[in-house]
Design a protein around this nucleic acid. Structure first.
Lengths: 238, 238
DNA sequence: AAGACAATATCGGATGTCCCACCTCCGCCC
DNA sequence: GGGCGGAGGTGGGACATCCGATATTGTCTT
């Protein structure tokens, strides 16, 4: 089967990825369903195993499939890990140059969160507020212990947009949250102590509870401005 | 160099990707700069060439590097192609099942665009409006010729958010625009004719020119509702 | 009879090697 | 002097082979 006529196409890999995705669609596989083994796939697609593996790794990175060593490959639930990975790299690279990408990355998160806040606030129910309040309290508890938890911060933002009921959107926001934190780490030692962060989130919560999305957005902005200034200083120092 | 102690890590590939990214950062490479050849990289990272290639392909998919056959590998400018690819697959897969992901994908685009519209409208200058008007006219010209151009549609949306001055954000919006159109294609034959689309965009332009972001958002929503209904029907038919 | 441990089967993970395809550039020939 | 062609280098691809991880299964112990 192998070693057939050479196709003129510049890149066979692209086609291979599509073939694999088509195969998944054709066989009506759902998330969690197993794919054929690498050897079977390689044989049925008429390519070498290494070539196939390159495609599979790419598909894994795209969040299409999940590879479990020694067990098999499966259709994966959506995940944006690769996106986050790539963007964080982008940000780091940018910080070593003109900082442009880092600022834009930050800008995306800010635009997304402030843009979506009104809708989230409007769709918020007492139950949502309750959960958001818990997140704030958790943040405050950690702050009292002098700890600075990125996970708790992320959880607050997650719950902030829970009312929208869009899990994919949540993941996307999570990605930019991760990127934000990474850039913050790279840009220099944290200047904000945990207590201040907790207090800020408490204020945001209050604004949300009061249904004032604009105020909440303004509060969110403060954390961005600080980081932007730090990035500006970092870049200027070169 | 090869065959050193086995690392306990579950996956070496992940580490390899990080190593390559670190190498780029350490050598202070910028976008467009060439990377070492595959053989050099494989040797200096102490892995086999095929293993290295898998990582490189993933990095390419993440938009970190650009690979030009027969020429070399280069640090790439940011691009979200892989993201679009993965999400379009997600949408197609979803349409064959419960349609949930497809709806959420649509929801993300809608949330993003309506959420960002106020800021875009506020930041819009006469120059921006001018360019937006041109896009509308182009759309209308095509409509008169009976043509239905996805590119012209995309261009309109691109110019809509140009005032925000965030290229990365533009690319991200572009991704969800692509995903939207793909889902629309997959969900069934277009029910909207080019003239209606052009007319709608004209109305959106008018709203933007009038500084009425809310109205523009409402107009945008109409295209989403139609598609949602189509998806609902498609899924129900199973 | 039930649970823990060990052998094994089944995958994916990694490598080295060989050859092909493609691009670029330099030098030759017209 | 300009265009064409080949040489060299670089990525693309295919095997064959061995390593490593994981789940399962079967047996041994309690």
């Amino acid at each position: 089967m192998a070693r057939q006529a050479r196709y003129g196409a510049q890149s066979r890999l692209r086609a291979l990825q599509s073939d694999i995705m088509d195969l998944i669609l054709e066989r009506e596989l759902e998330a969690g369903d197993p794919l054929p083994t690498e050897n079977e796939l390689a044989a049925s697609l008429g390519v070498g195993r290494n070539t196939l593996r390159e495609s599979l790794k790419v598909l894994q990175a795209m969040g299409v499939i999940e590879i479990r060593h020694g067990f098999g490959m499966f259709v994966a639930p959506t995940n944006f890990d690769a996106l986050a990975e790539g963007l964080m790299f982008r940000g780091r690279l940018s910080l070593r140059q003109n900082g442009e990408d880092a600022l834009q990355l930050l800008g995306i998160r800010q635009a997304l969160e402030t843009g979506l806040l009104p809708a989230a606030v409007a769709a918020s129910t007492p139950g949502h507020l309750e959960r958001l309040a818990e997140a704030v309290e958790h943040l405050e508890q950690l702050a009292q212990a002098g700890e600075h938890s990125a996970a708790a911060d992320a959880e607050f933002h997650r719950r902030l947009f829970e009312p929208l009921g869009n899990e994919l959107l949540q993941q996307l926001l999570g990605v930019f949250g991760k990127v934000h934190r990474k850039i913050q780490l790279e840009a220099g030692p944290a200047t904000d102590d945990a207590a201040a962060v907790a207090a800020l989130h408490r204020k945001i919560y209050d604004a949300v509870a009061a249904g004032d999305a604009a105020a909440a957005g303004g509060l969110l902005a403060s954390r961005f401005e600080e980081l932007r200034a730090k990035i500006g200083a970092l870049v200027a120092g070169r």
